[in-house]
Amino acid sequence: MDETYYRPSDLSRFGEIGEEAPDLAKKFFDWYGAVFEEGALTTREKSLIALAVSHAIQCPYCIDAYTSESLKNGADPEQMTEAVHVAAAIRGGASLVHGVQMRNHAARLGM
């Protein structure tokens, strides 16, 4: 099947989102650019955070983009893998901690 929901070539077309709402797009892209500038965090650290979030939200565009950015900004595969584990741990932990809600509800229903 040729058709897929995600096409890698669409990433480079991101700017087209501004065609219908240029003012909003400009605000978004300006803010986006400013977010990733070096500040209290280095560009490498910001790239690693973005990479981890990309996995948490399971965005294939973002995973490709921030794998490249992480390498470009001086991260190595070991650091990148640790970042993905952080995302996975938070996702896993978020599911597991809801087990307390399950236990609370089960306790209410039980005898």
Partner: peptide, 10 residues
């Protein structure tokens, strides 16, 4: 390569 100045600081 990324930004040289930022990489140098890191």
């Amino acid at each position: 390569p990324g930004n040289q100045a930022a990489l140098e600081r890191d």
